[in-house]
């Protein structure tokens, strides 16, 4: 089976300042890979390159998926459009006949656990969590087989974060998409992903990969906690994940 996404020796620099170097990564269809790394290590840049938004200085991106979507740290909703219109915004370019769009919007809203009455509201009328749900629904509406998540839940409080993670796990099971899930929260990565990739502190390659046991949906609390303990105390790969000061980057 060919990969849903293949990154081959990706390198990038901003204004002559190297950000990423020889990044190799393959993601299988239906596989969720969490990419962890401290802030400023180039995760967002890598996601933009992988999604074709930024042309890499070096290397090659080979997408094997049919349709992608992205969920950003901020919801990035159109303030002048209602929640339903925001979800529909993605569908205008999805080659879906106009008359089928309302049903698709409703389906996506259900997957993102949005209440029907919230669909008529404007983003200013929604809470932060609801806005991010709309962004998730917008991504799911195009029925992507690959989703890029760029630290989507960082701005949410702990309880809400967990509910959103559960939502993504359930949606991934139902909709069967592959994903690159960027986060700097190890527990989040352990809950959501099939595999964890750790980005080098300075973006010099993928420092290492760890395969997580079982399917994300079947992984219970105790397993997640045990994994976290093991990775943080015994695995040198995760030694620097929490102790980096991005201000000291070159």
């Amino acid at each position: 089976m060919s990969a849903a996404l293949e990154l081959h020796r990706i390198g990038h620099a901003y204004f002559g300042q190297s950000v990423l170097n020889s990044i190799d990564l393959q993601i299988a269809p239906g596989e969720v890979v969490a990419l962890v790394g401290p802030s400023g290590s180039g995760k967002s840049t890598l996601a933009h390159i992988a999604a074709g938004l930024v042309e890499p200085r070096e290397g090659r991106v080979t997408p094997g998926y049919a349709r992608h979507a992205m969920i950003f740290q901020e919801p990035r909703l159109l303030p002048w459009a209602t929640a339903a219109q925001n979800i529909g915004f993605a569908l205008r370019r999805a080659k879906l006949p106009r008359r089928l769009r309302p049903a698709r919007v409703a389906e996506a809203a259900r997957l993102a656990e949005l209440e029907p009455q919230d669909l008529a509201k404007y983003p200013v009328e929604l809470s932060g969590g609801m806005r991010q749900r709309v962004a998730i629904a917008r991504a799911l509406a195009v029925r992507p087989d690959f989703i890029f998540f760029d630290e989507p839940f960082t701005a949410l409080d702990v309880a809400l974060k967990r509910r959103m993670q559960d939502l993504v796990i359930a949606a991934a099971e139902e909709a069967q998409f592959a994903a690159l899930f960027i986060t700097h929260d190890l527990v989040e990565a352990l809950r959501i992903a099939h595999r964890i990739a750790v980005l080098d502190l300075r973006g010099r390659g993928i420092a290492g990969l760890r395969i997580l046991p079982g399917d994300p949906g079947a992984r219970d609390e105790a397993t997640t906690f045990a994994l976290r303990q093991r990775f943080l105390t015994e695995d040198p790969l995760f030694r620097h994940i929490h102790d980096v000061d991005e201000r000291r980057r070159p």
Binding site: R76, L78, R93, A94
Partner: peptide
């Protein structure tokens, strides 16, 4: 807000869109 432009690009909007 350039973030909105990037978002639109993800969902296949061209420069004109």
């Amino acid at each position: 807000d350039r973030g909105l432009g990037t978002m639109a690009e993800v969902f296949r909007y061209g420069a004109l869109g």
